[in-house]
Design a protein around this nucleic acid. Sequence first.
DNA 1: TCTCTCACTTC
DNA 2: TGAAGTGAGAG
Length: 606
Amino acid sequence: MSYHPFLPPQPSDFAIGAMLGRRPPFLSAVGCGKPILEQLVGAGESNTELPSRGLDVPAPSSHPQPRGTAEHEVEFEDDPVVHLESTELWGQFHKIGTEMVITKSGRRMFPPFKVRCTGFDKKARYILLMDIVAADNCRYKFHNSRWMVAGKSDPEMPKRMYIHPDSPATGEQWMSKIVNFHKLKLTNNISDKHGFTILNSMHKYQPRFHIVRANDILKLPYSTFKTYVFPETEFIAVTAYQNDKITQLKIDNNPFAKGFRDTGNGRREKRSEIEHLKPVLQLKVKDVEQKKDSGSSDDSSCDPANYFLQVPTVATSTSKDPCESDTDSDGEAKRLTHPSEVKSREMSTTSRQPKEQPDETLQREATNGTERQTRAKAWGVQKSLLNVHNSVLCPEHFKTTLDDGGDRPLTNTHAHPYCLPTSTFVGQQIMSNIRGSTRFMPSQSHFNFIGSVPFMAAGVLSPWSTNLPADRERCSDSGAIAASNQEFMGQLEFPLRFQQHGPISQACSLEPSSVGLIISQFFPYNYMIAPTHGPHIPAASYRPRCRPYTVPVGLLDRGTARTDAYHSKFGVDVKGSSVVTVPVSVVVDSKLEIGGGPASPTSRPT
DNA sequence: TCTCTCACTTC
DNA sequence: TGAAGTGAGAG
């Protein structure tokens, strides 16, 4: 069975659509906390059993074979299995409700997205990619210590797909290392020119991992995609942390935030101490001055240490047990590769909590909420609060994905990706399926003349990129957004835009005259390819300051994917069998992360 | 809600 | 040594 990302969704597309940005009918406001897995297999496949406690898995035979066309059956002789690393850590975050900070200058994800791959054909070459798609069509707010739906989502940001900088590499190389996507950066800057992944704040997202068997990035648009989703990596993008527990978890686990750990000598304590010291110091200085004026002095009173001793201990809302030593200076590598340590940390974290009564917690959190509102009022942004629906998302919605609510650690099942069966996407299909485009209508000739299409640089307008604010305005209400989406789907228009040239730190784009032009017209992503990649792409094809191609909304994410996701039995990694299409604008690092292999001379060990 | 600066960290 | 990655906090 195959589908095309630009064709109207099929009835069975609901579940994946939920994850890919299309609002699923069962994921509406109240009580929408169905497990993602349930969403995945429940909507379109009514006869599909849900994995009870993560153990029972629908037999693959009960699902339509998610492979692509027959020709791809032949093409794919491998059987990739993907395992998410740091599942313990992801699980800890997921239980609370993972938040990822997005900034204008770009922020990394933490926990980092890392996978371990097996089942590759050792000799074949693969391209590994990652993208982040909207998990639903909702905007959220953090209210009363919970994430709640706060209305319809804002218009989608331009989609970008991140190609792992080692791509393409042989299966042997990929399998020899943990594939790390920590260089991927998140931003809320819609006009970002670095190739960062652009997200909307206060929206929920789901990272996806893709495997493409191809020996050349230029072949991406014609290649078969195998897509993997790890529900525990779902997160809400924020410009500032909302949940103190997430903040503390990040501080506890991210080496770069070590300075904020209570047990360290970090700035948090120092700054707090200084803040508390200020009045004391001022008084003391005053006192000293007065004494000086009176002709006397007190050396001891001039010793800052004495002032320090007079300052009460600073307590934070998420204070840790002072007895807990800070032995995590080894960095994330060690931390993330020792689940037992992570687990013990989790227990340690838990052990800190009992000192605080639930009521106190609620009271404190409510107070925090009040403080936030007060602050919001002060800054005159209360209107956003007045405009929410207050629809309550299942309070445990983050927890429900794979957690059966029992004692089973999230890790047990979180390691298993859920393949997203999709379909095969080839150029001819595009040709036969696209209709009604009025702008940059792809034609067969585009394919025939790949490589000879003139370079069309900056300046081509698109309502999906720089015009997005206008679109946002037009879609100021949910109906308009839906209408907008519908309009886009209905017209099947493929506006194209080549962004202006600009500095690119995270990635560079491919010279559009080769294949980018074609790609940019068909795929709702930016295609950004690193200039430093191996011998597979002629150096002449790269233009370091070249632009990514911004193409609008994720059509794939608008209901074109199929729903019959499935996963393997508990304890067994899921085999990739989804075949998506459509990459699109792909972002690639200029630095390599997995590596050391012969085909990746510039790579370095993780 | 968001942006910016700061002091701290890792690498 | 310095670039880059952190959350806190002010605005």
